[in-house]
Simulated assay, not measured.
Amino acid sequence: MFTIELTLKHTAMPLSVQKKEQSDAEATYNSVVEAIRSGSSQLVDLTCDQQPNKRVSVLGSELAAVQIFEKSGTATASGRPPGFFALSSDQ
């Protein structure tokens, strides 16, 4: 599952949608990047594959940033959950 996360101007909380296929995620990412570059006041409509009824529409001029990443399991290569603090049972 790939997540496309949008950051809006003057808004601390990002918006996100998920796509199952990498090609769909890349196409969505590229359309958002194009909207940011143009700075137009046209709507950018996004749909989510994980939640089919989830739809997001944002004015292109209000977009500040976009990122794409693959959502993997909660464990890292070391087997620990991600984050700054983890309790270890090894003593």
Rank of each mutant, 00 (worst) to 15 (best):
84 F>R: 13
85 F>S: 09
54 K>G: 07
51 Q>W: 09
65 A>P: 08
67 Q>W: 03
8 L>W: 04
28 T>S: 09
31 S>P: 07
47 T>N: 07
75 A>W: 12
27 A>G: 04
48 C>A: 06
70 E>S: 10
28 T>F: 09
52 P>D: 04
82 P>F: 01
38 S>R: 11
5 E>M: 04
58 V>K: 01
17 V>M: 06
13 M>C: 14
84 F>V: 13
79 G>I: 01
15 L>R: 00
66 V>Y: 01
50 Q>V: 12
1 M>T: 06
68 I>E: 02
3 T>F: 11
87 L>N: 08
88 S>H: 06
65 A>V: 00
42 Q>Y: 10
65 A>R: 05
54 K>F: 06
33 V>Y: 04
75 A>I: 14
1 M>N: 07
3 T>D: 15
62 E>I: 06
72 S>F: 12
35 A>W: 01
84 F>T: 12
29 Y>N: 02
28 T>V: 08
11 T>Y: 03
22 Q>R: 10
16 S>M: 10
54 K>M: 07
58 V>D: 03
77 A>P: 11
61 S>N: 12
80 R>H: 15
53 N>A: 15
17 V>G: 04
30 N>Y: 09
91 Q>K: 11
43 L>E: 12
41 S>I: 07
45 D>V: 10
78 S>F: 07
62 E>A: 08
66 V>R: 00
21 E>Y: 10
73 G>D: 05
69 F>W: 06
89 S>P: 14
21 E>P: 13
13 M>D: 11
52 P>E: 07
59 L>S: 06
76 T>L: 14
5 E>K: 05
81 P>N: 11
69 F>P: 08
88 S>N: 09
85 F>E: 09
40 S>R: 05
55 R>M: 12
14 P>E: 02
6 L>C: 03
6 L>A: 06
68 I>R: 03
11 T>W: 01
4 I>N: 00
2 F>E: 02
61 S>F: 05
71 K>G: 13
21 E>G: 14
38 S>M: 13
18 Q>N: 09
20 K>M: 13
17 V>W: 00
28 T>A: 11
82 P>M: 03
24 D>S: 15
41 S>K: 11
20 K>D: 15
68 I>K: 05
28 T>E: 08
19 K>I: 06
8 L>G: 04
62 E>Q: 11
35 A>R: 00
73 G>T: 01
21 E>M: 13
76 T>E: 13
26 E>T: 10
37 R>H: 13
50 Q>T: 12
70 E>L: 11
14 P>V: 00
11 T>E: 08
2 F>M: 02
83 G>T: 00
2 F>S: 01
78 S>W: 04
8 L>C: 03
16 S>D: 10
58 V>N: 01
48 C>G: 02
62 E>Y: 04
9 K>M: 05
91 Q>W: 09
48 C>K: 03
7 T>I: 06
83 G>Y: 01
89 S>T: 11
85 F>K: 10
11 T>I: 08
83 G>Q: 02
80 R>K: 14
50 Q>D: 15
